[in-house]
Design a protein around this nucleic acid. Structure first.
Lengths: 166, 166
DNA sequence: GCTGAAATCGCCTAACG
DNA sequence: CGTTAGGCGATTTCAGC
């Protein structure tokens, strides 16, 4: 089933639900110009085929007392696949680490972390991250402020691209 | 209104909606142990007070043809506030840039970008980002693979912390 | 195959206690 | 916060393109 190409209505559905994931199905149907039942069927199909991985409320970390956000650049000693996987598994087990990306270039991983305060993060940094097996170097940068934080993908770019191909 | 402290039920609501933003209100009410009407009132209040900034479908970039994800580290010539703001405004206008964080340390900004392919990104990099006023240096790292990508905040850490204080 | 219309069922959301 | 109750949305069924 994966690889099924999407038509214009499917892409509109994805764009609308990315912008407002709690929109009612009838409102969504109205916006994309079809009636509710086929619209709901399309949404279900998009979910089953993995185009939509889930729906999440966007919770403000600061309001909840997570005052600190940090990017951590991690270098490993060994980049053998087993060692990479082991480090990734550790990252998944650390709640303060929200994202873990393996990169090319000098640094092996970039981690996006949140923490209630600096002290909690420092403890994590020294006792967990830096102390983890195979970790060679960690460089951290505090987020001063976030200027942009758009979820998901730019559908505008996708549409532009499809128009160009046609 | 902001600063209103949250009780245990509010925090459960936030945790549930972060995990599944499309949950029905009656299901949410059942999970947090209250009836539907007060549950809905709490959700509305949490939205109004900014604890919930929105709801978004989590769309898989790869499935949609965004094969390339890149982190870009940007250094500026001038860090005067007006120049920082100007750069941030530019970032907001670039669709390929999904996140823009101002950092402490040697690099001024980190940008998370998505692109359909390398060629599109290279064009953006040379013609837009590097060419922008006040940009001194740009270092990019391609994402090889993503090992973790949890949305939002770790409520487990919050609860642990509150229990500790009590 | 797809869509759309009708009908049922369940949820949302007021008003009130 | 809970209960009641009316209106609306969600979802199935079925017919038509």
């Amino acid at each position: 089933m994966p690889g099924t190409r999407l038509d214009a209505i499917d892409r509109m559905i994805l764009a609308e639900l990315q912008a407002d994931g709690r929109m009612t199905n009838v409102e969504l149907a109205r916006r994309v110009g079809i009636s509710a039942p086929p619209c709901l069927r399309r949404v279900r199909t998009l979910e089953e085929q993995g185009y939509i991985r889930g729906y999440h409320a966007d919770v403000d970390p600061r309001e909840l007392g997570f005052e600190v956000q940090v990017f951590a650049m991690v270098g490993l000693v060994s980049q053998a696949e087993a060692d990479l996987s082991a480090f990734e598994a550790r990252c998944r087990s650390w709640p303060l680490v929200r994202e873990c990306h393996m990169l090319n270039g000098e640094v092996d991983f970039i981690l996006k972390c949140v923490s209630p305060d600096l002290r909690t993060f420092q403890t994590f940094l020294t006792e967990s991250l830096t102390a983890a097996p195979n970790v060679a170097s960690v460089k951290t940068s505090l987020v001063i402020r976030q200027a942009k934080g758009e979820p998901g993908v730019p559908f505008e770019v996708l549409e532009e691209r499809l128009a160009r191909q046609a």
